[in-house]
């Protein structure tokens, strides 16, 4: 079980607004999942390097720096919920 306060903190970080029922449900469920994950502490990993990625690829550079076909502004803006000219429009920021 993790606390409701922790759930509220994580929800804010994740930009999620949760109902009281959701907070309780996630406190319970996340607690159970994290408790299950404690199993990993059975393993001594002090000398084990982390694997973020399985491929041996590193520093992949573009072979040629060429101008390719890019999306037209109209194509990019076609899905915008709201726009003004060639800008995405959002509610008040400050």
């Amino acid at each position: 079980m993790i606390s409701i306060k922790e759930v509220e903190h994580v929800a804010l970080l994740a930009r999620l607004e949760l109902s009281e029922e959701e907070k309780e449900m996630y406190a319970r469920q996340l607690g159970a999942i994290l408790e299950y994950a404690q199993m990993l502490n059975e393993l001594d990993t002090a000398d084990v390097p982390p694997t973020a990625h399985v491929l041996p690829l590193q520093n992949v550079w573009r072979e040629k720096d060429e101008v390719g076909r890019q999306l037209e502004p109209e194509e990019v803006l076609a899905n915008a919920p709201d726009r003004e000219g060639q800008f995405f429009k959002v509610p008040r920021i400050v």
Binding site: V7, V10, L13, A14, L40, V48, P49, P50
Partner: peptide
């Protein structure tokens, strides 16, 4: 929520980094 928690300050090493090591 779970992922944000595992990456958040104070839990990153205990959960996310630990998992990356076990992945190895």
């Amino acid at each position: 929520m779970l992922g944000t928690y595992a990456l958040s300050a104070g839990y990153y090493d205990a959960y996310y980094l630990k998992a990356l090591k076990v992945r190895t």
